[in-house]
Design a protein around this nucleic acid. Structure first.
Lengths: 195, 195
DNA sequence: GACAGTCAACCTACTAGAAGGTAGGTAGGC
DNA sequence: GCCTACCTACCTTCTAGTAGGTTGACTGTC
């Protein structure tokens, strides 16, 4: 509790950074120890096992996302603006390379090989994202600011897929601007405003 | 040359299956040896290093994709039908669980942590996919069977992102049908036919 | 047709290093 | 006296990769 920045938070932060670049099996306790500046064994004091560490990381990421979305909805009530802000958040993270990928999207890609405790948390994140975006779509259609043919559920799933796919393409092409190039027309297409 | 199925092909096939489920660091030579039924050291005879193995795998995957697309274009000249066939191919692979994910999409997600020799091949795959789909979009708009607001390039990138994102969502939600639920309205939206 | 040489495809046995994890100790704060 | 946060030293298991040997099919040569 004495440190300016808690060690366990530093461990989680560097773990996220490693997972975002190479996945669950792409880093070791030794890697984290090197970054945080403590010994390998000390990480076990904070997180007894690697599974504990990553499960905590994903659970916290989901909680922060849920809190962030609730906060966002209070500040930005308009569903269209909400989608723009959400897409803009990721565009910024990718372009300034702070968080160039969603940790849950990366872990989801290797889901069949993930420890079950971690897999459960990753699925929970996707569950939340689906239900939140479905609600945004539903409300947008109701208010007349969003337009789409099918159901709000399907439209939400299309949007989630486009966001995660755009992250992947931006990474694969080594072109951070590609994310925005994909998301901007995607959001515009949902808008009822003349375009 | 004597075997009914060449051992090197079996090695590549099982490596692809392992990568598709857990990524580059999610399998070992011992895992492959167990599946193929030979000893670990014998894999080194066919592929001196893990990098050689995965580079060969990705390069071959790109070559097969290029050949498959060329073949497809001869059999299915209509750009809209082409998109439907492409989406349908993946829908089938995911639903019968033969290839539940694109090996290059998975490797792209861990691109920053990949050996450079493999990374180059993965980027080449995405480069081909972009140029092929851009050409399909361009021809579709020209013929009047596809409609979209922006450029063919951007529309192709949106389509690629949606396909890969849909794979991810289907995996994360443990629901293979989700892929088709996302792709069917996506292709329909591009169609000029009344819907 | 027998013989020797070559080579691909496997094998056993091994290595060094990295993996996650444990045992047990120390320093300092409450 | 106890607890948190760290440490050193160690363990077992797994990692990719190597050395060197065996087998059997194909070769050219006499």
């Amino acid at each position: 509790m004495s440190n300016l920045v808690m060690t366990s938070d530093q461990i989680l932060a560097s773990a996220r950074s490693f997972i975002v670049s190479g996945g669950y099996n792409g880093f070791s306790y030794a890697d984290i120890a090197g970054v945080v500046g403590i010994r390998k064994a000390s990480i076990h004091h904070h997180f007894p096992s690697k599974v504990d560490l990553v499960r905590t990381l994903v659970a916290r990421h989901r909680e922060q996302t849920e809190a962030g979305m609730a906060e966002l909805e209070r500040k930005v009530p308009d569903p269209l603006a909400l989608l723009q802000t959400y897409a803009g958040y990721w565009a910024k993270c990718i372009e300034d390379a702070t968080i160039p990928f969603c940790v849950c999207a990366l872990l989801a890609s290797e889901l069949p090989a993930l420890p079950p405790e971690v897999a459960v948390e990753v699925r929970a994140y996707f569950g939340f994202l689906s239900s939140w975006l479905t609600e945004v779509m539903r409300r947008g259609a109701e208010k007349g600011v969003l337009q789409f043919d099918g159901s709000a559920e399907v439209e939400a799933e299309i949007f989630i897929a486009t966001v995660h796919g755009a992250m992947l393409s931006a990474r694969a092409c080594g072109n951070p601007a590609l994310f925005d190039a994909i998301l901007t027309p995607t959001v515009r297409r949902l808008s009822t405003k003349i375009h």
